[in-house]
Design a protein around this nucleic acid. Structure first.
Lengths: 160, 160
DNA sequence: TTAAGATTTAAAGTGAACTTTAAGAAAGGA
DNA sequence: TCCTTTCTTAAAGTTCACTTTAAATCTTAA
């Protein structure tokens, strides 16, 4: 079964120009062309696109993904470098999840804060609540937040 | 205690031009100026910066954060809108964490795959492993990944 | 008072990832 | 065959969040 770029766009939700852009950047080297130069996508190409989406979600840039694809094409001699790339990216995602979880703590606190502000009619009234009047889970979050100061934001490190 | 922009830059890790940029965009409306027009930061300004960093980490854009600050300045009449903003953003972060967790599954699988490829000397050899030869946690991940197809990527929805 | 170093501004430049435009070629149904 | 739709390309435009530049002004130690 072969798909045109329009089919693939519909199935993936990616705009056709984006698919052409990925192709131009070397992210889709396995897509064949028909006689008239028209791209013919196969199921395996859709699988590559799923992997690309996932790597993008993990924080890799287009050029990093291209690097990976180039390594893939080179074959088994690049296994070690690909392995290292995935380990590095796994660490990045683990770190990112941790950061988002502490961001979530703050948002949970803010949601509670504004729930109370709605209830009490002002933000001042919430600030005037004593420590004992806070629900336990909010106390816990506040304690946690006080520990975190400026998270030294790690630069998005490339899959080296 | 008052801080110059250089002090704040050092303490937060944010470059001074970035702080000026935030100020210009209206994210730091509480920073005072000395006689010569030089910014004098207070502890409360550092707290605002921490909140800004957090909201940025949650996926809010500069203009969304400005919107929040404008609402804050308007006072208690905007409590409800601020509440809704935080709830929406909390949902965004929860969704983002879920997405990263499935991304992490894929990366965990890939790390295992390339560990095996190193061990066996080729990627083909790993592909030829039978279902029974896979460790349980990898089987589990593979089963999970088969369910997820194209995650309909939600647009970064603004705090409405 | 003077020199060095930090701060100010506006404006231009950057990099990433698309997105849009324009003009032309191919595919597929009536 | 014709017509409409979909495809092709290259090139220019967009958005976001800074970053850099340049020239002027302020602060501070000698």
């Amino acid at each position: 079964m072969l798909y045109t770029i329009g089919d693939v766009s519909e199935r993936t939700g990616l705009p056709a120009p984006t698919l052409r852009y990925y192709d131009k950047e070397g992210l889709l080297p396995f897509v064949n062309r028909g006689s008239g130069g028209i791209r013919k996508f196969q199921e395996t190409d859709l699988e590559w696109l799923r992997l690309i989406e996932c790597l993008k979600a993990s924080g890799l840039q287009i050029k990093d993904i291209k690097r990976y694809i180039d390594l893939f094409i080179q074959g088994d001699s690049t296994i070690e470098e690909r392995r290292q790339m995935f380990y590095a990216q796994k660490e990045n995602v683990e770190r990112e999840i941790k950061m988002l979880q502490s961001t979530l703590d703050l948002l949970t606190y803010k949601c509670w804060f504004y729930d109370m502000a709605v209830e009490l009619g002002s933000t001042e009234a919430v600030k005037n609540l004593t420590e004992e009047q806070l629900p336990p889970h909010i106390k816990k979050i506040k304690a946690k937040m006080n520990k975190v100061q400026y998270a030294t934001k790690k630069k998005k490190d490339c899959a080296a």
